[in-house]
Design a protein around this nucleic acid. Sequence first.
DNA 1: CTCTTTTTTGAGAGTTACTTTCATTTGATG
DNA 2: CATCAAATGAAAGTAACTCTCAAAAAAGAG
Lengths: 211, 211
Amino acid sequence: MSSMAPATTPSAAKPSLRERKKIKTRQAIRSAAYRLFDQQGYDATTVEQIAAAAEVSPSTFFRYFPTKEDVVLTDEYDPIMVEALRNRPADEPVVESLRQAILPLLHEMHDADREESLHRMRLVQRIPAIRARMGENMAVSCDMIVGALAQRTGRSPKDLELRVVVGAVLGGWQEAMLHWVDTDGTADLPELMDRALTILAGEFAHISRAS
Amino acid sequence: MSSMAPATTPSAAKPSLRERKKIKTRQAIRSAAYRLFDQQGYDATTVEQIAAAAEVSPSTFFRYFPTKEDVVLTDEYDPIMVEALRNRPADEPVVESLRQAILPLLHEMHDADREESLHRMRLVQRIPAIRARMGENMAVSCDMIVGALAQRTGRSPKDLELRVVVGAVLGGWQEAMLHWVDTDGTADLPELMDRALTILAGEFAHISRAS
DNA sequence: CTCTTTTTTGAGAGTTACTTTCATTTGATG
DNA sequence: CATCAAATGAAAGTAACTCTCAAAAAAGAG
């Protein structure tokens, strides 16, 4: 999902020297950026400063991150999520599949990167530009998830039901994450998300049709 | 909600000459912008071109629209929505209040501005920068709606249930609108949204707890 | 109508994110 | 070592957005 974690080396096999250098540079840029964001704020920090602090040229910065926002929002979980969704039984209800795909991800994130995730979500909450990009990532994730589910269930990717359900779950998810930030990360994130889904079940159960 | 319509003169009483001029300028800029977007695409159109086509200076452009994206995304419906939510009975279920507040808005939009809404949503769908801003507006709307509902029901604005439900409804709403664009606006938007809510009710009804 | 006050506008210069190009370096490979 | 491909840096360019200040236009009072 949007704005999760910056990949804790996803099972590296045998990185060549070049790869290792690339990874190191990437992380050097990122941590320099976070340091500066903390010191002077996001907007007040220019890309040139980040590049200088990481000891690379500005052009190198943009080679690693297409935009300044991408330093914060790099989503490495979408493919995992799509894969998880593909492997669910074809006749499982959509929401249940989503739950089963999301919760393990949250657990992994919670165990491995809690501090950094919190840091990142705080920026998402505070900086409009980042919130905006988060929204875009959301839309992209939504498309991918809908695509995966459509394929699995043989429906069209334009199917109203699919899209609405996925959109709703992601919308609820985002709010759950923001709530988590509001509590300063004291709550248990996966448990929070589980609760969120239960809430939705309770709320929507009474709706039929009206107008 | 985010990215709806550019206000069809919301019950104008007696605009002074100054006001009238302002409105005219605003619309001149907007229609010039839409014309150019159609001709050359959004990204290829610079603010200077828009200003020139509308016969104002670039500085004037930015006085009317803080960013280029705001030409497309100007939300005049949030206050109406909040007002509608305040006037609902205090013990009404949250989702029902949302439905009752949203549907009339969609009807109004559908009757008054269908063509322009469609035009706008097409840009939302196609242009990443606009989609991003749409996401941000979404978040802002979400906050406002949560705030209104929190006040009405005496809950905290940080209340998990409230936030998750509102987030989910807005997420579903957005997808419904995008679906509407996919059908080229042939569907009836309010009916679509009503259907979306019904779908959610059906989907979430089966969830309880697991893990 | 005239003078004063306030608002709107335009011109221009400045900042910064982001792009593009090209020459140089540096790690990989036979 | 020699050759090839990839990573880097320097530098110039674009366009969105900001800021300042002075001119023009409207509102209001005498």
